[in-house]
């Protein structure tokens, strides 16, 4: 059984502190108002970076969601 995950940025909550896109530019990009958006769906190689970005996000806007893949 393998675990898959997805990353979301809640743009209603994001305060635009910029920690995510300055530390992990491969995962996040700044919008014109300095809030953050995901570049593309995160790949399995980027789970550590996504977790770290979630931990340092001062808005709590970045969430990493895991779901169990029962087909594996």
């Amino acid at each position: 059984m393998t675990a898959e995950f997805s990353v979301t940025v809640d743009d209603d909550v994001c305060m635009g502190a910029g920690y995510c896109y300055s530390s992990y530019p491969e995962l996040f990009t700044a919008n014109s108002d300095d809030t953050s958006r995901l570049n593309a769906p995160a790949s399995s190689n980027s789970i550590d970076e996504a977790e770290k970005a979630s931990r340092i996000c001062p808005s709590g806007a970045i969430e990493v969601h895991y779901r169990k893949d029962t087909t594996a």
């Binding site: 809640d10 909550v13 305060m15």
Partner: peptide
């Protein structure tokens, strides 16, 4: 903070 953050978000 989760309760308060909506006060300070973009919306």
């Amino acid at each position: 903070r989760r309760m308060l953050m909506p006060l300070f978000g973009k919306k």
